[in-house]
């Protein structure tokens, strides 16, 4: 039984979470300014156009910043401490919050290359996480 908090999926994000179940990471891409954004929005946050479409990310990126949680974010994360919460900057230029899956939390550094991996935490939810590339 998975006891950690699960994402509260809404109509806007349903395609994003559906794609993750198929181990695909989707971003929204703006056809007006060509830039991607994450999380998915109705209007491009860069140029405010409504001409946005889904686009699949390649899955590579680097660590923009991170922290090692020595104290858990609630009891369900306690067995995982210390664990890494990071902001990963994908090669498509967007950042996402995630975990860096590693046994050596001390070895990580900002700028390090990482690759997506898909963690099927429940039959309905897959979380995108990253590992050192």
């Amino acid at each position: 039984m998975y006891e950690k908090p699960l994402p509260v999926i809404d109509p806007e994000s349903q395609p994003y979470w559906d794609a993750l179940k198929q181990h695909r990471l989707l971003l929204k891409r703006c056809r007006a300014c060509q830039r991607c954004h994450h999380y998915p929005r109705e209007l491009c946050p860069h140029c405010h156009s409504d001409d946005v479409e889904w686009s699949q990310a390649a899955g590579g990126g680097h660590i923009y910043s991170y922290t090692v949680a020595r104290r858990p974010a609630g009891p369900s994360f306690k067995p995982d401490t210390p664990y890494v919460v990071a902001l990963v900057e994908l090669d498509e230029g967007v950042r996402m919050m995630t975990n860096i899956v590693t046994l050596d939390v001390e070895s990580l550094r900002i700028g390090q290359r990482v690759a997506v991996q898909f963690d099927d935490v429940t039959p309905d939810v897959t979380l995108p996480k990253f590992r050192p590339a």
């Binding site: 994000s13 910043s65 922290t67 974010a73 919460v85 902001l87 996402m96 979380l127 996480k129």
Partner: peptide, 20 residues
């Protein structure tokens, strides 16, 4: 949807990442 499932400690986590 985009922070809590990964165990982001709040509020300290965001400040920690800024410091890092």
């Amino acid at each position: 949807q985009y922070e809590t499932p990964w165990g982001m400690p709040t509020p300290v986590g965001g400040y920690a990442m800024a410091a890092m």
